[in-house]
Write a protein that binds this DNA or RNA. Structure first.
Lengths: 152, 152
DNA sequence: ACGCCCGGACGACACTTGTCTTAGGATACA
DNA sequence: TGTATCCTAAGACAAGTGTCGTCCGGGCGT
């Protein structure tokens, strides 16, 4: 049991993203960062309160998504799951639920309905060429499931 | 205000999928279909009860995702949002939340970490070629936003 | 020594989701 | 006519989310 199947709701994801960005932060730092970034938390467009951020970090910690250590006087939190882990899980779930478990269908849908800029299009083409030759290549990307490895 | 921002949770999505498949159905038909398909509803692996399906259809209706009409003695439900609408919303939200609003990043991620079978890879290549020549082609796919149009 | 402010611990509260039970009206069948 | 069926309506209830208010102990500036 590497990963408890806890889900990471949107609000928690917002604070988690801050941690991913800066590596680690205290409650107040997260709050500050979000405000500067013009984060719109609650439905009234009012920014979150300190308590809200604290709660979210707390919940993330009980879910084993972040860790805290008592540095100065304030706790400092840092993520213990990587962006990629979360992305993978979300994508997999989306593919399972709406694309019959076929990632290819999602790719097609994306290309058709969401224009991608030429640079990225080129990158995609290149990647495909590469894969054509070496079909079974597994960049460490797809390891069988390590609990997480944001900073090993 | 074309689309109320109601979200469609997983359980509701499961019944909605049945409606997409068969066009329309009563509560019991949905239930039947799910059971035949070996649907695993609740966490104990026990199939849903009639009431559960009814509730879900009800909630979908208040969310304006399906419509019901009293046909025989039982209500018949049918979807009023298309698969594509739901897919688009989910994908957009995913891209916004985890890929900086860049669909290209998601495409890259998909290609790298989720192997796609050669047939689809070919299809993708073809699509890309096509787009290379005619970059601004818009199959009716991308209409500016009609509230939904599965059967107007 | 005295307030003050910061940071943390608790817990509260409304709404959404996941799942059902049950009461009550029709229907259909013996 | 009674009874087994099927359907809808209503509501219940525990967990998970979204968002705080608040009380409390420690430092710190004066």
């Amino acid at each position: 049991m590497a990963k408890p199947p806890h889900s990471i709701p949107d609000s928690e994801l917002d604070v988690l993203k801050v941690l991913w960005d800066r590596g680690r932060a205290t409650v107040r730092e997260v709050l500050q960062t979000l405000r500067e970034a013009g984060h719109v938390g609650n439905k009234d467009g009012k920014p979150w309160s300190y308590a809200t951020v604290a709660t979210l970090l707390d919940r993330l910690e009980t879910k084993k998504v972040v860790e805290s250590d008592r540095a100065d006087q304030a706790f400092t939190y840092r993520p213990i799951v990587s962006v990629k882990d979360v992305q993978r899980r979300r994508v997999e779930s989306l593919v399972d639920k709406l694309y019959q478990g076929e990632p290819g269908l999602l790719v097609l849908h994306l290309l058709k309905s969401h224009p991608l800029d030429p640079h990225q299009a080129e990158e995609v083409r290149a990647l495909l060429e590469e894969m054509r030759e070496e079909p079974a290549s597994k960049p460490p990307e797809d390891a069988p499931r390590s609990p997480s490895d944001p900073s090993p």
